[in-house]
Nucleic acid binder design. Structure first.
Length: 632
DNA sequence: TTAGGGTTAG
């Protein structure tokens, strides 16, 4: 370490007294501390002087700090000289690599790229680790132009056979959207490992090519837990929860143990499908394998229980968590909102604020949903104003959608319309759709026509809008207009999505489609329905046929509503599950008014809790009332 | 000191 300190450019500090403040050190630990705590090349000079005095070798960690502080200053060369004196093998590259890694994985990946060019300028020889860190920086920045240069360096320096680097390069091209080039490299690779395949699978999924991903998945020579998890998570992300669960079953068959990430992915699939049985099994597995403290798992568990209609279980998971993030709070607030428990959602928000967790945009979506589902207009307005004023969160289109829903559902259709016209962004189908839906509840044909005018431009093939409009006309007795809508749909080949409901009995999912008689137990279901109907009539039930949008005879309409999918699922559930257990039904569309009033009565007649998850929210029927308090 | 998969809104 004997070289002249003064021979390298060191910026001069005005405060020379600082030198005297550095006390002589004797131990290695103290030296490391000295290097860790300096903040400028000038202080480095003082510290370095102390180190020379104590004359012992330095370790890498504090030297990284030297590199980071000097990297972009005239002291670069000075730092180089220090590095050359400390390790036996390739000392300099080693320390710079450590700096590159810190920069690439930290907040300033661009500095890693800059430093790389500086190193080239000063003739520092790159090794595989250098390339790896700079590629990581390019990947984090999705910077393909520098990535291509790095790719060239890797080829030129002769690291072509390095599988790690090749994998990163494939990853980089794929992440930057150059799937063709990634594919070409993948095909030409002299050797591939499980990571190579996993990268390709994950990237194909991200680009939406699930078939391509599955093709590779089925062709890969060996699969590990990450391969399975990538594929399962990929299916979940693109809304193919059934395929995800199916693959998970195959994974179990193959004897591959799941890890925390798999658990999250499978739980998310259960949440989507409302698959409570499997969700509970995974929950037990997770606890058995010591994953209980994993916050992401707990967050997904909350969401799973919420979406499977088990709000109490969700609360339990939430309460047992040792550490909660904004996601945990938001999931719970959103869950309470979905179940119509607005007061509790709002109370939870105040608890959250008290423990010092800052809300985010999603938290406010939950809060606005809570207000909207329960008609808390002034609270909703307050939250909307507060999100920007108190938390600096700019409302997104989803928040505007919630506000339109809140106002229009409460009957303030004109205010909602004004609100839409004054939005700072172009309203989307969700926003106009919320207004349209409320027009049906409040029987406002003119406003519905205004909404549909915009919806036809935005999303002309969405059958749901036409169905609502047609219903609005039907309820107003405007059958000619109803017929016109139906013809319009026919001409454009838009078909109404059939309503279906599902119920799980003994682990088997039974699906019922409105009006269909495909289930083997159809006969018995109809028979049991007739018996129930007798009891319901005694309690004042009259079928509400206004929900039938066809211009047919009353008797036919009654038959129509009695064949709604949720009714078939409910009767099947009553026939095949033990008394007093809750019945959980899922529906792809919104529950209709007739089923809603029927279910309230049935819950009292059979003395059972009936939980229905529809497209929008949960309805929990108990003793002739619903958790939505008929506001939906 | 280097590579791949994860949570809340819909």
């Amino acid at each position: 370490m004997l070289f002249a300190l003064s021979s390298f450019p060191i910026p001069q500090s005005p405060n020379r007294n600082q030198i005297h403040n550095v006390k002589p050190q004797s131990s290695e630990t103290l030296k490391i501390d000295l290097l860790r705590n300096f903040n400028s090349p000038f202080e480095l000079r003082q510290v370095h002087a102390q180190i020379i005095k104590t004359n012992a070798p330095l370790s890498i960690l504090p030297l990284t700090r030297v590199g980071l502080v000097c990297a972009f200053t005239p002291s670069f060369h000075y730092a180089q000289q220090i590095f050359k004196c400390v390790e036996k093998q390739k000392p300099e590259t080693f320390v710079w690599n450590s700096c590159l890694k810190a920069l690439a994985e930290g907040d300033s990946p661009i500095d890693a790229i800059m430093l790389f060019y500086r190193l080239r300028q000063y003739d520092v020889c790159p090794d595989t680790f250098t390339c790896s860190s700079v590629l990581r920086a390019c990947l984090n920045l999705l910077d393909l132009s520098n990535g291509r240069i790095l790719h060239g360096v890797v080829e030129k320096v002769g690291f072509r056979s390095n599988l790690y680097l090749q994998n990163m390069i494939v990853h980089l091209y794929a992440s930057c959207g150059e799937m063709g080039e990634a594919r070409l490299l993948f095909e030409k690779m002299p050797q591939r490992d499980v990571v190579t395949w996993n990268i390709m699978i994950a990237q194909l999924i991200k680009q939406g090519d699930h078939e391509g991903a599955y093709d590779l998945f089925s062709r890969m020579p060996e699969r590990n837990v990450r391969s399975w998890t990538s594929m399962i998570a990929g299916y979940v992300q693109c809304g193919k929860a059934k395929e995800a669960i199916h693959l998970f079953a195959k994974m179990e068959e193959a004897g591959v143990k799941c890890n925390e990430v798999t658990v999250v992915a499978v739980l998310a699939a259960c949440a989507d499908l409302g698959a409570l049985d499997l969700g509970m099994r995974i929950h037990e597995y997770s606890n058995r394998h010591g994953f209980k403290r994993n916050v992401r798992i707990s967050n997904t568990l909350i969401d799973m229980y919420v979406k499977c209609g088990c709000l109490e279980e969700a609360c339990k998971v939430f309460e047992e968590m040792e550490e909660r993030t904004v996601v945990s709070w938001s999931a719970m607030i959103g869950g309470l909102a979905m179940h119509g428990r607005a007061e509790e959602a709002l109370r939870l928000f105040s608890d959250m604020s008290q423990v010092g967790i800052e809300p985010n945009g999603v938290t406010f979506i939950g809060l606005l949903h809570a207000c909207s589902h329960m008609g808390l207009i002034s609270e909703g307005r307050r939250f909307f104003a507060s999100m920007t004023r108190d938390y600096g969160i700019i409302p997104q289109i989803e928040h505007y959608g919630c506000m339109v829903d809140l106002l229009s559902r409460a009957g303030l259709l004109h205010e909602a319309h004004e609100f839409i016209l004054n939005m700072p962004m172009k309203p989307n189908g969700v926003v106009w759709g919320a207004l349209l839906g409320a027009c049906r509840v409040h029987k406002n044909v003119e406003m519905a026509e205004e909404a549909i005018k915009h919806l036809l431009e935005l999303d002309p093939l969405n059958d749901g809008y036409y169905v609502v409009l047609s219903n609005i006309y039907a309820e107003a007795g405007r059958w000619e207009d109803t017929a016109r809508v139906r013809k319009f749909m026919k001409d454009r080949q838009v078909k109404k999505t059939p309503g279906w409901s599902s119920i799980t009995v003994d682990g088997v999912v039974h699906e019922f489609v409105a009006g269909e008689e495909s289930h083997p137990d159809t006969e018995q279901i109809f028979q049991r329905w007739e018996e129930l109907l007798e009891e319901m009539r005694l309690k004042g039930y009259v079928p509400n046929t206004s929900v039938v949008l066809l211009d047919i005879e009353e008797g036919e309409k009654v038959k129509f509503v009695s064949r709604h999918s949720e009714k078939l699922a409910l009767v099947f559930g009553l026939m095949n599950t033990p008394a007093e257990t809750p019945i959980r039904i899922m529906k792809n569309l919104r529950i209709c008014e007739d089923c809603h009033s029927a279910f309230k009565l049935i819950s009292a007649i059979v003395n059972r809790e009936i939980v229905v998850r529809d497209r929008n929210r949960f309805h929990c029927f108990n003793d002739n009332s619903c958790s939505c308090r008929d506001y939906w």
